[in-house]
Design a protein around this nucleic acid. Structure first.
Lengths: 235, 235
DNA sequence: GCGGGTCTTACGGAATGCGAACGAACCGTC
DNA sequence: GACGGTTCGTTCGCATTCCGTAAGACCCGC
């Protein structure tokens, strides 16, 4: 009923750093469509300058850059402040990926990637880091559950719930879309940001989440199974 | 095709690309009923030309096309702009599915598919990509029956009905076409998405549905038998 | 009464969801 | 760098639900 949803479009500025004009164009396009303002740089030094100047809320950074290594750029960005970084890495380049995460990238996406997936990752990172501007609802409420997105804290009847990251993301999504059914594939895409993966992953995480938010997990009243279709979060 | 009666608000234009006239007809039918304007192409080159000309908000694309591969069409559509694509794939063709998603399809539906499901996917993709407001009344009412398509919930006199997927699809179809007779073959095609199958399948499902929505299933008042013809949903 | 269509019931197979457990990856600590 | 706990994704077996078909009883029109 009076559930106000919710999350006006998340607006923020994203700096895209990629020397490939085709990739950059697609990425910028999608991010704009998703409601972000965008800046674009084609090399490391320019990227650092623009980051200092425009103070973006997040940086999408290609690892393969001419002149300066993407890792180096990432490190310097991190030295300056707490701007979140999503890295673009070549498929299977495990070492780069590990290195990137160690240096401080908040997430990574391997090429070739679906642009939409990238947008999802960006949103997810912003939500997690709390860097999203105040326009997005800071607190989600539904029934007796209260979710402080920025603080990454969830309470039920005043008692705090110990949710993992995935559980948090999952519940967050359901709270933003109550009363609608979502297939496992949709949830995989929307919450995990993947277009592939095992359906049962969703099943298991729903089960674990129920374990924490339902009075009787075996007979859920909030996170309901719609047979043959998916799951729905009821009031 | 000329002018279109706007009972519901137009939510966008969808280009349907399929060489099978039967499939295409059903798909176009449902999309129109859901409030979309539609265009239809039977091969790849025509599809690309129409996409460039009509600038649809979304493309429903059969993977199996004569002349040009559906994947190729998808790729070219993607090269040109960011029009969302929903792919139709053969059942179990996992490799094609993955390939399609990597190339940039936003969703896929496996044949045979329920037309209602396709419409839901189309709406879902449009909502996700933000290309169109996903309004258009998703709640069907008739007599004392209320159907929330998005929630996949059906109530009668306020009490929830436990319908299976098939029953849901069937009732959904009847609510969208009240007062008209449909033969078993038509229902098979429109609801099941098949052009083959046993007539008695429909009979049985109608019976099971009656069991749940009629006061006296033996003397139905809503889901009426038209002897020698088929079934009709009365007010 | 007869023939064809419809209703009802029952059943086996398939699909789906659930629960438990496992191994791998990751995190924080020492 | 090594260790233990946590989280995550996957897999397996089991129970349940659903679906399509078949077979017989029933009903309608002639």
């Amino acid at each position: 009923m009076g559930r106000v949803l919710t999350l006006a479009r998340m607006t923020g500025t994203v700096l895209v750093v990629d020397d490939d004009p085709t990739v950059a164009e697609v990425v910028v396009d999608y991010l704009r469509q998703a409601g972000f303002a965008t800046e674009h740089a084609t090399d490391g030094p320019t990227a650092l300058a623009m980051a200092a100047d425009a103070l973006p809320d997040l940086v999408v950074l290609d690892l393969m850059l001419p002149g300066m290594d993407g890792l180096e750029v990432c490190r310097r960005l991190r030295d300056r402040g707490q701007v979140p970084v999503v890295m673009l890495t070549a498929l299977g380049d495990e070492s780069d990926r590990v290195l990137g995460l160690e240096i401080g990238a908040d997430d990574y996406v391997t090429k070739p990637f679906s642009p939409r997936e990238l947008v999802l990752r960006v949103r997810s990172v912003l939500r997690r880091t709390g860097a999203a501007p105040a326009s997005s609802a800071p607190v989600l409420r539904h029934a007796d559950i209260e979710m402080d997105v920025h603080a990454h804290r969830t309470t039920r009847k005043g008692r705090e719930l110990a949710l993992t990251t995935r559980e948090f993301d999952l519940l967050c999504f359901f709270l933003q879309h109550p009363g609608r059914v979502f297939s496992r594939e949709e949830l995989m895409r929307e919450v995990w940001g993947w277009s592939f993966g095992d359906r049962s992953t969703v099943t298991v995480h729903v089960r674990r989440l129920r374990e924490k938010i339902e009075d009787d997990p075996a007979a859920p009243r909030m996170l309901v199974t719609v047979w043959g279709v998916g799951y729905r979060f009821d009031a």
